[in-house]
């Protein structure tokens, strides 16, 4: 669990640290501008207190199994409650302050820590939330379920992001395949916890102050009156089952009997292209690729992960930044 979160100094190579820092600065800068537009003066203290809440939530242990405990990441939760831009900003602040004053995660690792823990979880999680909401019933139960899925997916996306970064900036001879399998496998399980806790937390907020949930601003208040509680065991069992199934699928990709993805990759011509620029290309870290069993498959997985993350984060960014601009231009038009 500590792998993707709060990565220490020296975990990924310096170029990747710089590259991720650059990407993070650009995206957080955009989130900041968006947030500045969204946050009326009223919401600055609210955002600050939400930051304290996320900070505290990360210290708040919940039981996982037989007395072992985990804690919340809170990126998706923050995004659903505050909107992805403010959510990303708030979690970024938490991550940076933790590194600066509490040595939780390296200062030189902030680039990838912010990217993985704040940006991918907030924007990616929010995108999944909106997509999941479309598939779920339009009532409180559906929203709570969508929130749970989004929070679980955000953790997995975060782990995938770390694996892709490892491909470019590995500092030890551990193959991408192994890192990917381990990271995603472990985080699927962690995601169940994150999803569950986030879902219940959103449920509790919806029950008392639905007006505080950014992610349901488009819905009428009466929508939340219809609450059909989901039994905890069903919820957990379903979550674990889904995680196990996904973990199996993922590990299938990573062992040397490539099926699904390779076929896809070959069909689309991606595999050829991928092998052309090949693993010997210097942009990939030597360490991550030394023992790669099947180059095209690894690249396909990496490409798929990178694509999934970019799509989710990009969709999240678009959802936040896009519609707002339109309404702004409308405002200027009326002036």
């Amino acid at each position: 669990m500590l792998l993707a979160l709060h990565a220490p100094d020296g975990f990924l190579s310096a170029p990747v640290a710089f590259a991720t820092a650059f990407i993070s600065v650009v995206i957080v800068g955009a989130a900041l501008r968006q947030s500045g537009r969204e946050l009326k003066d009223k919401q600055v203290p609210l955002a600050g207190i939400a930051a304290a809440f996320i900070f505290a939530a990360q210290m708040f242990n919940f039981p996982v199994a037989s007395g072992t405990t985990g804690h919340l990441l809170g990126g998706a939760l923050a995004a659903i409650l505050l909107g992805p831009a403010t959510g990303a900003l708030v979690v970024t602040i938490v991550v940076v302050v933790q590194a600066l004053l509490f040595a939780d995660g390296g200062l030189s690792a902030l680039g990838y820590n912010v990217l993985n823990m704040a940006i991918v979880t907030s924007f990616g999680g929010y995108a999944v939330f909106l997509l999941a909401r479309k598939l779920m019933p339009r009532n409180a139960g559906g929203i709570v379920g969508a929130a749970g899925l989004a929070a679980a997916a955000s953790v997995v996306l975060s782990a995938m992001a770390f694996s892709v970064e490892w491909l470019f900036g590995a500092t030890a001879p551990i193959d991408f395949d192994n890192v990917f399998t381990a990271m995603v496998g472990v985080h699927l399980l962690i995601g169940v916890g994150e999803g569950l806790i986030s879902a219940l937390a959103i449920g509790a907020v919806l029950a008392s102050r639905p007006d505080l949930v950014y992610g349901v601003r488009d819905l009428k208040r009466s929508t939340f009156a219809d609450r059909t509680p989901v039994p905890m065991r069903t919820f957990v069992a379903g979550g674990i089952l889904a995680a196990v199934v996904m973990a199996t699928v993922v590990s299938q990709f990573a062992v040397d009997s490539p099926d699904g993805l390779e076929t896809v990759a070959e069909d689309t011509g991606f595999a050829d292209q991928a092998t052309d620029h090949a693993l010997d290309s210097s942009i990939f870290a030597d360490y991550a690729t030394t023992g790669v069993a099947n180059e095209s498959v690894s690249l396909a997985i990496a490409g798929f992960s990178g694509g999934a993350i970019s799509l989710a984060v990009g969709y999240g960014l678009f959802l936040t930044m896009g519609p707002r601009r339109r309404s702004e231009s409308r405002e200027t038009a009326t002036v």
């Binding site: 609210l46 207190i49 939400a50 304290a52 809440f53 505290a56 939530a57 708040f60 919940f62 039981p63 996982v64 199994a65 037989s66 919340l72 409650l81 169940v192 916890g193 569950l196 806790i197 879902a199 219940l200 937390a201 959103i202 449920g203 509790a204 907020v205 029950a207 008392s208 102050r209 505080l212 905890m232 065991r233 919820f235 957990v236």
Partner: peptide
């Protein structure tokens, strides 16, 4: 166990409302 975590999660939600 995780499925006994409901009170904690609800408390976290309540905590958010109070904080807000």
């Amino acid at each position: 166990w995780l499925w006994q975590a409901k009170p904690i999660a609800s408390a976290a939600g309540a905590m958010f409302v109070r904080s807000y």
